[in-house]
Simulated scan of single mutants.
Amino acid sequence: MTLKDVLTRYPGAQTFKFGDSASMSAELLGLVRAGRKTATCGALRDYPDGSTETPMVGRRDIALEWDGRPALVIETLEVTVSRFCDMTEAFALAEGENETLEGWREDHRRYFERNGGFDPEMELLCERFRLIEDLASEE
């Protein structure tokens, strides 16, 4: 299924990629498919006011494979803002990438250092979502 086909089925959907590398993207898509990843976050600085990329409750968006092929359709359930240092264990574990809040902090500190800078006080845009459709099953 092409991206154009998926955008026709989900008008208003935005596209995005999980992670910052092909291997990380594949791992995170796998966690969503397995039901382990039901949340994600990014630096609030990467979402300027009015940005169409900002998640919106109720909107269905398309997660892409690293090469740009459509992978998944998710629906945003909740959007909140939290400082890195105030991240809750419940949200960190809902991201599905770590077994502990400490592991989440270490991995995400390194991620933000690679992607624009890290500050323990930095604000994060936090999104909870549910999987609507796995597009890989239609290939």
Rank of each mutant, 00 (worst) to 15 (best):
A39N: 01
D61P: 12
E121W: 07
A22F: 07
G117K: 01
L64W: 10
L7T: 02
T80S: 15
L131R: 01
I132W: 07
C85I: 09
R33L: 07
R128C: 04
M87N: 12
A43F: 06
R60H: 14
Y10W: 11
L131I: 05
S137P: 03
D46P: 03
L28G: 01
T80E: 09
I132L: 10
R128S: 06
E113D: 03
R69Q: 09
T100M: 01
R9W: 09
E65T: 02
D46T: 10
G35N: 05
C126R: 00
T2E: 12
A22Y: 05
M1A: 10
A94L: 02
Y111W: 04
S51W: 09
E97V: 03
P11F: 07
R128I: 06
S137R: 15
D20N: 14
G42W: 06
M87D: 11
A90L: 13
G19I: 14
N98K: 06
T100D: 05
S51D: 09
R69W: 05
I132M: 02
R130D: 09
V32R: 00
F91P: 03
R109W: 09
M56F: 14
M24Y: 12
E97N: 00
M24H: 11
A90Q: 14
V79W: 00
Y47T: 06
R109H: 07
R110F: 09
G68C: 12
L135H: 14
T15F: 06
V57N: 06
A39V: 01
D107F: 05
A92N: 04
I132C: 00
L3S: 00
R9F: 07
V57F: 13
E78I: 07
E99P: 01
S21T: 14
A136Q: 12
L125C: 14
C126D: 01
M87W: 09
P11C: 11
A34N: 08
R69C: 10
A26M: 06
D49H: 13
E106G: 12
A13C: 14
F84G: 04
E97Q: 07
D67I: 11
L29I: 15
E78R: 14
F129T: 00
V79H: 02
F18C: 00
S25C: 15
Y10V: 11
A39H: 02
C126P: 02
K17D: 13
E127Q: 01
E53S: 15
F84L: 04
L131Y: 04
R45I: 11
T40P: 00
P48M: 01
E95A: 05
R9S: 08
E113H: 02
I74N: 01
R36S: 04
M1P: 03
G116H: 11
L72R: 03
R33H: 09
G58S: 13
F18V: 09
L28I: 07
L7D: 04
E113Q: 07
R128G: 05
T80G: 10
E121A: 11
E75A: 07
A136W: 11
M24K: 08
V79I: 02
V32H: 01
S21Y: 13
P55N: 14
T40R: 00
Y111M: 02
F84D: 04
V73K: 01
L93C: 04
T88R: 11
R45K: 14
A71P: 02
V79N: 04
S25W: 13
A13P: 08
A43I: 06
T54A: 13
D86R: 08
P70K: 02
G68D: 12
N98R: 10
E78A: 13
